[in-house]
Design a protein around this nucleic acid. Structure first.
Lengths: 128, 128
DNA sequence: TATAGTGTAATAGTAAAATATAACACTAGG
DNA sequence: CCTAGTGTTATATTTTACTATTACACTATA
């Protein structure tokens, strides 16, 4: 997996797991891959995986069963709440950033529409 | 200044300077504060400031005059280009993130409108 | 009960950002 | 020419994420 070297790996792994759950690639109650397997898949150390999982467990997103594995919570409400929180955090981050640059609310919406439009008509890749 | 410990300080300083220029707190041709003064203002080390400024100089945003100081470029086009690039990067970041969570284009716009609306009617602070 | 698969944790080492400190180079002005 | 203010650079040290490695604890099952 490719990581952004400006952000801690364990933090990016957390977001990766969030994504897997939100998109249904991991379902409520499902066992996630073993920590050693995840370490291999993500090409990182077991401890780094563990640090990410530890936080997800604290947040109630994952449930650890010693000797068995780590499982996605069965509480759908917790997952929904987590998804909404993530979306709002991303929007908030972007909004605050642009607002600090004196970009108005309307301009932000305009720029976003333009961005989406451009994205459909270009070959992409200019901001990847 | 308050820094996000998930992102290198020198990088956050770069963004801080970008903001100062875009919002007109620093104008084209203007001398920016001395590196030692900036280090004090931002409560960081001179070398950390220098690292940020070094990159800004490479990008043509700042111009260094040894013995005199660092100055904002007089080239308005460079500044405009930088502003546009920053805005697009922020949008791109947010868009990619939400898209990876299976949020559609329309939903992203909807969520943004809702976020802005909520922001006007609430006491704020829930995502700060 | 032995074993394979799992999570958990500790230790020691590496790498990069940031710091503390000092020195050097250039400019303007008295 | 000297000094104060500026950018530039170097060295050593600290901090923290990350790694490598090992060991321990628990579970199911052959």
């Amino acid at each position: 997996m490719k990581f952004d070297d400006k952000i801690p790996i364990y933090y990016q792994i957390k977001n990766y797991i969030y994504g897997q759950i939100i998109t249904g690639k991991l379902t409520p109650g499902e066992k996630i891959p073993a920590v050693r397997q995840l370490a291999i898949d993500l090409t990182v150390n077991v401890n780094t995986v563990q640090r990410a999982l530890g936080e997800l467990i604290s947040e109630g997103i994952l449930e650890s069963r010693r000797g068995l594995g780590n499982f996605v919570t069965e509480d759908q409400a917790t997952i929904e709440e987590m998804k909404h929180k993530l979306i709002m955090e991303r929007l908030h981050e972007m909004y605050e950033n642009l607002h600090d640059l004196n970009v108005t609310d309307d301009e932000i919406v305009q720029y976003l529409r333009q961005y989406i439009k451009d994205r459909r008509t270009t070959k992409d890749g200019q901001y990847n």
